[in-house]
Design a protein around this nucleic acid. Sequence first.
DNA 1: ACCTGAACACCGTTCAAGT
DNA 2: ACCTGAACACCGTTCAAGT
Lengths: 200, 200
Amino acid sequence: MPAKRPPVPLSRERIIEAALHIADGQGLRRLTMRRLGDALQVEAMAIYHHLPRGKEALMDALAEHVTTVTVDPSGSATWQELARAWARAGRAALLEHPGVLALALTKPPQGTALIAVREQGEQLAASGLGDSTQAVRSLRAYVMGSVAVEIQRSGWAGPAGDGEEPGAPPLPGSRTESEQEAVAAFERGLEALLRGLAET
Amino acid sequence: MPAKRPPVPLSRERIIEAALHIADGQGLRRLTMRRLGDALQVEAMAIYHHLPRGKEALMDALAEHVTTVTVDPSGSATWQELARAWARAGRAALLEHPGVLALALTKPPQGTALIAVREQGEQLAASGLGDSTQAVRSLRAYVMGSVAVEIQRSGWAGPAGDGEEPGAPPLPGSRTESEQEAVAAFERGLEALLRGLAET
DNA sequence: ACCTGAACACCGTTCAAGT
DNA sequence: ACCTGAACACCGTTCAAGT
């Protein structure tokens, strides 16, 4: 018979990982302290030892996780290339965890996520972009909104928008789009915005 | 002494109105069937008679409400003016009810909201815009993302992003912005996007 | 047709207690 | 230091019952 599991100690990282798995798989509304405890083979109350502010702290941590990105500026010769890199990285991070998108779009950046936003501004300014504050804001808005549209179209939240259950068939009116169509739409809008930002 | 209230009959509209009030005032997480019943002077279970799918139906209705906008195309000579009108109307509608923004950005358009999106596409196509499908998508993304950024910066969800309690002081790092600054930022990004969309 | 009351299976969080 | 058990004040939803 298998020996009793040497209990892997709980940790912030393991908790967040399990929480993302539940949120992406069953929806945010089914992410429950008790269910999370089950997934971690632990009583729900044990979580409070690692996240003292409880579910509030968990939500903050999830938002921070999917919203923290880094870009190596040395790979980009122009501010346009740099902006593209940030936009693509941001989109990819958000798209990886559709279950917590609502948190990511709603909570102000915090901790590492806030640092990342500032870094983006500094890099763009250093790369020769004039009003980098305005540009960062428009770019962030476009990226967040694009992922929102994309998740909506994917039918992740159900075709009737049934709140939180993923996996249902897609939109009633319009077909599901392929990954390629989605990136194409994203890139075209991004290029339009970059062109517009370039003209003072 | 005041006579007993002649009970105003419950209705879908009154329910939605009360729900928006609670969500905007206390946050989505505190919007509860029981609290909603209290606000309407009725037992929570009475709501199910008007919204058979319960809380799920309520959430759908709220998303649809803040996401349904109309624009009179006769007021716009060019497709640019028309696009501006749609963008401003969309922003205003979302901004009016920060409490349900998470729903609006997450649920696919449905009912009147879906009709509105289609109408936007038809109007823009009719006004001489080439790839109106792409334009509508980019514009919607920009509008939704802009409002997300704006609500984040307003500190509506609390500075530490404390989940759902509004009314707390704003961001730790950056100042709160005035309404004028917010519209200025929105308009500048919008113009950039429109310029970019114009060049093929 | 419209609303209520009681009931059920869940929630988040506390607190004292165990190891 | 880390986790558990029991308890409390809530949830959403059902169902039979009232008017």
